[in-house]
Design a binder for these strands. Structure first.
Lengths: 154, 154
DNA sequence: CCGGTTTAGTTGAGCATTCAACTAAACCGC
DNA sequence: GCGGTTTAGTTGAATGCTCAACTAAACCGG
């Protein structure tokens, strides 16, 4: 029986895995903290506003928004409640599906995003792109796409 | 004044950044969910147990443990309260520093880790290493080390 | 050795996320 | 078009995290 034997990580794999854990956790925590400090929103909410801002009429169905922002339905529902309370989005009934809800980015929400974006982009540049060679950026894209394909495709 | 102008991400950088976000979020969520389902602990708690299991006497000072597990002091303190309630660790007074606390992995904690490890390692292999070429694994290590150096060194 | 500063760790409040349960509407086969 | 199934979205409870405030002990300069 081979299936009962675990193939452990060899020392190189260990090091890679732990470095990845450390780096991705530190990167996300740093960006999250900067965004919270400078714009009063967590990164997940920033991403919701970004996706809405890119949509036609700055409007998306809740499920489309959840998929676009890489969020569960429940998470988005809770987030939308808070974003609505902040006045950054509003909900509207979907005219073509009575189950549906539309999330609409308000002018205040767009303004909040406009105010948050430069600092956040600067952070992404400083903490990610400035630390890597152009070749490494390209490698990271391919690696990320391979992982995302596997994880979101299954 | 150049400093007021934001250097936005070009389309390639956008794609890289979004792919990285999607991949790292999906990877961590998947592993976290698997660990929660199969071993009843979140990934952050698993990491705490791992670091303790590798320490002499399976014992570490709270701050050393926090650093090793990439956790804030507060986070570790809360986690330790829960892990102690599960019987997986216990706290002891530090003999050389009366402010200090030692976290000790119990036999039950070691057993829980032993039970969790094979499934988790299989998940890391399946969702990460199996999706990448050996060259990509090497690239990912170098990329992660560069990012971690920058983020944790500053 | 005394007072200010730093370090160790904890705590509570508030917020974000997960999971499971739920309502309601659309879809689909017959 | 009726009844079972799927899809859309929300909700509440439980859990984990962050931040700021706090206690207590160690350190350190004069």
């Amino acid at each position: 029986m081979l299936s009962v034997m675990t193939r452990w990580l060899d020392p190189d794999e260990q090091q890679t895995w732990r470095a990845f854990l450390t780096a991705s956790r530190a990167l996300m925590e740093t960006l999250d903290r900067e965004l919270q400090r400078d714009a009063g929103m967590p990164h997940a909410y920033y991403e919701i506003l970004v996706r809405l801002s890119e949509a036609p009429q700055r409007t998306l169905r809740m499920s489309e928004l959840a998929d676009a922002a890489g969020s569960s339905r429940s998470r988005l529902s809770h987030a939308a409640t808070r974003l609505e309370a902040s006045g950054w989005i509003r909900r509207e009934d979907c005219p073509t599906d009575r189950r549906g809800q539309l999330a609409v980015l308000t002018d205040e929400g767009f303004a909040a995003l406009r105010a948050a974006a430069p600092g956040h982009v600067a952070g992404v540049r400083r903490h990610l792109f400035d630390q890597l060679s152009p070749a490494q950026v390209d490698q990271l894209r391919r690696i990320s796409e391979a992982l995302a394909d596997h994880l979101t495709g299954s």
